[in-house]
């Protein structure tokens, strides 16, 4: 599996692109990093790859995921997960239901509960299924959000500064937790960050925008 960007650029419709075209290949289990000053369009690039681009913006170039051209597909069909800066657990659902939200519909009945319970256990959140997401700590929320993303079985994961809200100790902890999961499942990751230590920990290609 691999995520491949070829001459990708983003900009306002009819306007100048935000940055020079980017080409990058991230192999299975690796994490590529995009770095650059604020406002250059790093998050916009992730939006373009994930299919969340705001109206009035256009993307050029090609994004291939396992050989599939994803730019023509709607966000929900791309199989590209996203970890946001905030964990973004749905406030109206319990922690367990949040995780189950990502689960494919083909997983039915008791198997759904089981998959959720297993994921919670891997995240050190065993027994949290019935909890209100608002009662979780920052680290717990980040781990639950990763598990929710992974249960959707994404073919790639985008990380939009997902660690920036965590304090230093927790940051290293969650970071290695996320990277280990990507590595063991062979999912290519693409991360946007301001923090050089994030890029170092990711260990993959670093692109400066």
């Amino acid at each position: 599996m691999s995520l491949e960007l070829k001459d990708v650029s983003v900009g306002p419709k009819g306007g100048k692109p935000l940055f020079a075209p980017i080409s990058l290949q991230v192999a299975a289990g690796e994490v590529g990093t995009l770095m650059g000053p604020s406002g250059i369009g790093k998050s916009t690039l992730l939006d373009a790859i994930g299919g969340h681009l705001a109206h009035g913006f256009v993307v050029s170039g090609a994004v291939r995921l396992n050989g599939r051209d994803v730019l023509a597909q709607p966000a929900e069909a791309r199989r590209i997960g996203v970890l946001f800066q905030d964990a973004l657990l749905f406030p109206h659902l319990s922690v367990g239901d949040n995780l189950a939200f990502g689960l494919a519909r083909s997983v039915r009945g008791a198997a759904r509960m089981q998959a959720v319970d297993e994921a919670l256990e891997q995240a050190g959140l065993a027994g949290f299924a019935g909890r209100d997401p608002a009662t979780l700590s920052g680290g717990q929320r980040a781990r639950a959000a990763l598990m929710r993303a992974l249960l959707a079985e994404p073919e790639a994961l985008l990380l939009d500064e997902p660690f920036s809200r965590l304090d230093a100790e927790l940051r290293a902890d969650i970071r290695s937790f996320v990277f280990a999961h990507l590595r063991s499942r062979g999912i290519p990751g693409l991360m946007v960050t301001h923090d050089a230590s994030d890029a170092e920990a990711a260990g993959g290609t670093v692109v400066q925008l």
Binding site: I80, G81, A152
Partner: peptide
């Protein structure tokens, strides 16, 4: 409404 939540749902494979 936090449109990030809606994006998160789309990233999890939920259709419109």
């Amino acid at each position: 409404m936090d449109c990030q939540h809606v994006r998160a749902a789309a990233a999890l494979g939920a259709g419109p």
